[in-house]
Lab assay of single mutants.
Amino acid sequence: NKFNKELQWATWEILNLPNLNEEQVKAFIDSLRDDPSQSANLLAEAKKLNDAQA
């Protein structure tokens, strides 16, 4: 389904953001699992944090 694909994509993207530490990655992945419908928003937040920590 749509959420499953978005969840998989967001998870992959977050795992590959180079500037997030392990705790941050875990927190984003946990949030994705808690509410897959928020995957686009969570991915945007993760990318923003990744850029800020570059």
Results as ranks from 00 to 15, higher is better:
A10H: 05
N19G: 05
L42A: 05
D34K: 15
N16P: 00
E22T: 09
N1L: 01
A40I: 11
L20Q: 00
W12P: 02
L7I: 09
Q38A: 07
A10T: 13
D30Y: 05
N50L: 01
N21Y: 13
A27R: 11
L20Y: 00
Q24R: 01
N4W: 15
D51R: 07
N1A: 02
N4Q: 15
I29L: 13
S39H: 15
S37R: 06
L32Q: 01
Q53E: 05
S31E: 08
D30M: 05
K48W: 06
N1V: 03
N50E: 01
L7D: 05
W12Y: 11
N19I: 01
L20W: 00
A40W: 06
F3L: 14
V25K: 14
Q8T: 05
F28I: 05
S31H: 11
S37N: 07
K47A: 05
A27P: 02
L15E: 14
N41T: 13
W9V: 08
L7F: 11
R33P: 02
Q8P: 01
K5G: 14
I14H: 01
Q53T: 07
R33E: 13
L17S: 02
E6D: 10
S39I: 15
Q24F: 02
D30L: 07
E6H: 07
L20H: 00
A44K: 10
N21P: 03
P18L: 09
R33M: 15
E13S: 05
S37M: 08
N41G: 06
A40T: 08
N19F: 08
K5M: 02
Q38L: 09
E6W: 14
W9E: 15
L43K: 02
L20R: 00
A52V: 09
P18F: 08
S31T: 09
D51I: 06
S37T: 14
A44W: 07
A46L: 02
L42T: 11
V25N: 02
W12M: 08
W9Q: 13
K5D: 15
F3W: 04
K26G: 06
T11W: 07
P18T: 11
W9Y: 13
P18H: 12
P36E: 03
T11E: 05
N41L: 09
E22Q: 12
N19V: 02
V25Q: 12
Q8G: 03
K26M: 08
S39D: 02
L42D: 01
P18K: 09
L49Y: 04
L43V: 15
D51N: 12
R33F: 15
Q8K: 15
N4G: 13
N16D: 04
A44H: 15
A27Y: 09
L49R: 04
L20F: 01
N1Y: 00
K48R: 12
I29E: 02
F3A: 15
A44S: 09
A52R: 10
F28Q: 00
N16K: 09
N16F: 04
R33L: 15
T11M: 12
L49F: 05
E13D: 04
S31D: 06
N4D: 15
F28L: 04
A54H: 08
D30R: 11
S39F: 15
N50Q: 02
L17H: 03
I14V: 06
L15D: 04
F3Y: 05
F3T: 15
W12E: 15
N19T: 03
P36A: 05
I29G: 01
K48N: 06
P36G: 03
W9T: 06
A52Q: 10
R33G: 08
W12G: 14
A52S: 08
S39W: 15
D34P: 02
D35F: 08
F28E: 00
E22F: 10
I29T: 04
K48D: 07
N1W: 00
L17A: 01
Q38E: 05
D35N: 11
K26P: 00
E45V: 09
L20T: 00
A46W: 01
Q38R: 10
A54S: 09
N50P: 00
F28V: 02
Q8Y: 09
P36S: 09
S37D: 05
E23P: 06
L17D: 00
A54K: 08
E45S: 08
N21L: 09
N1T: 03
A52N: 06
D51W: 09
A27W: 10
S31N: 12
A44G: 07
N1S: 02
L32T: 01
K26V: 12
S31Q: 12
A54M: 09
I14D: 02
E6K: 03
A52E: 13
V25F: 03
A40E: 10
E45A: 11
K5V: 05
V25M: 08
N4S: 05
F3R: 15
E22P: 12
A27T: 11
D35M: 09
I14G: 01
D34S: 11
A10I: 13
L49W: 05
Q24W: 02
E22M: 11
A46N: 00
A27G: 13
V25L: 05
A27M: 11
E22S: 11
E45N: 06
Q38D: 09
E22L: 11
L49N: 02
Q24K: 01
A46G: 02
N4Y: 14
Q38M: 13
P18D: 06
D35G: 03
K47E: 04
Q53V: 06
L49E: 04
A27F: 08
E22D: 13
L32F: 03
D51V: 07
L17P: 00
D51Y: 10
L43I: 07
A52H: 13
P18W: 05
F28A: 03
Q53H: 06
S31Y: 12
F28P: 00
E22Y: 13
K2G: 15
E13K: 08
F3P: 15
L17K: 01
T11F: 14
A54L: 07
D35L: 06
N16M: 11
K2V: 06
A52T: 13
S37E: 04
D34N: 12
K2D: 15
N21K: 09
W12D: 15
K2E: 15
K47N: 11
N21A: 10
E45Y: 11
E6G: 03
Q38H: 05
K26F: 06
D30N: 10
D35K: 07
A44V: 11
W12T: 12
E45Q: 11
R33Y: 15
W12R: 05
N16L: 11
A44E: 12
S31P: 01
A54I: 09
K5P: 15
N21H: 09
E45H: 08
I29Y: 03
W9L: 14
A10Y: 10
W12N: 14
W9K: 12
N50A: 05
D34W: 13
N41P: 07
W12V: 07
S31G: 09
V25D: 00
F28S: 01
P36V: 06
L7S: 03
D35H: 08
L7H: 03
L7N: 02
N50F: 01
E22W: 12
S37Q: 08
N21F: 12
N50S: 09
R33N: 15
N41A: 10
E45W: 14
L32Y: 02
A52Y: 09
I14M: 04
D51M: 11
N19H: 13
A54Y: 07
S39N: 13
L15W: 04
K2Y: 10
N50G: 03
Q38I: 06
N41F: 14
N16G: 13
A54R: 08
Q53L: 10
N21W: 07
S39G: 05
A40G: 08
Q24L: 03
L49A: 06
